[in-house]
Amino acid sequence: MSLKQILPALLALAGGLLLAAGWWLIFMYAPTEAIMGAIQKIFYIHLPLSWWALFSFFLVFLCSVAYLVRPGEHLDRIARSCAEIGVLLTTLTLVTGMLWGRKAWGVWWTWDPRLTTALIMWFIYTAYLLLGGLNLSEQRRRMVRAVVGIVAFADVPLVFLSARLWRSIHPAVFANESGGLEPEMKLVALFSVLAMGFFWLGLVLVRCQQLKSQDRIEDLLSTEQNREEQTEQL
C-alpha cells in the first residue's frame, strides 16, 4: 500500500489521538475559569469545531469558483466532502454552544449574530447537500452545486451583518468571549484547533477517496450494463 493511499487514514488516526490528548489537556492542564467555572471547558471543543466548519465552507466556495473556471471532477468531490463535514461540524458547534449557553446564559438559544449566522449557514449547506439527490445528469448536477456553493458563501457575511444590525444591543460578553485568556488556556485552545485540523483533513481526504471510487465503480457498472444491452440486441 503506497503512502498516498493510507495518508488520509493516518491523518484521521493522528487527529483522533491528538483530540484525545487534547481532552486530557482540557481537564488536567487548563486552569478552571474563575467566573464561569468548569463549564468554560466546552469552549476548547466549541472553538475548533466552529473554525474548521467555517474553513470547510470557505473551501467549498474556492472549489466551486475553480470548478466554474475549469471544470474537473475532483474539485466537485472536494467541495462535496467539505460541505458534508462542514455541516457535521456546524451541527456539533451548535449543540456544544447550546449546552454552554444553557449553563452560562440560562437559555438554550439567543439571537446573537454568531448564533444566527451559524444556524442559517447550517440550513443553507444542508440544502446544498440535498442537491446531490436531484435527478439530473452528473455534469449538470456538478454545475448546479458549484453555483450554489458560490451563492451560499456570498450570503454568509451578509447574514452576519444583518444579524448584527438586527440585535444591535447585546452584552459585550458575547462579543469577546475569547478575550482575556490566560496563556495556558490559549495553549490548550490552540492545541485543540490543531488536533481538530488533523482529524478534519483526514476525514475530508477519506471522504474524497471514497467518492472517487464510488464514481469510478458507478461508471464501470453503467458501461458494463450498456455493453450487455448492446450484445443482447445483436
Binding site: 481532552w23 467555572g37 468548569a38 463549564i39 471547558k41 466546552i42 471543543i45 466549541h46 469545531l49 463535514i85 457535521l88 451541527t91 456539533l92 449543540v95 456544544t96 449546552l99 454552554w100 444553557r102 449553563k103 482529524f199 476525514l203 477519506v206 471522504r207 471514497q210 471510487s213 464510488q214 465503480i217
Partner: peptide
C-alpha cells in the same frame, strides 16, 4: 463536577463517530 461539559463531549464524539459509521456503511456498499 460539570455534567454539561460531559454532555457536550458525548455529543461531539457521537457526532464524529456517527460520521465514521456513515463512511463505513458507504464503503460496504461500494
Amino acid at each position: 463536577t460539570e455534567p454539561w461539559v460531559l454532555y457536550a463531549g458525548i455529543a461531539v464524539w457521537a457526532g464524529l463517530g456517527g460520521y465514521l459509521v456513515f463512511l463505513a456503511i458507504n464503503q460496504q456498499r461500494l
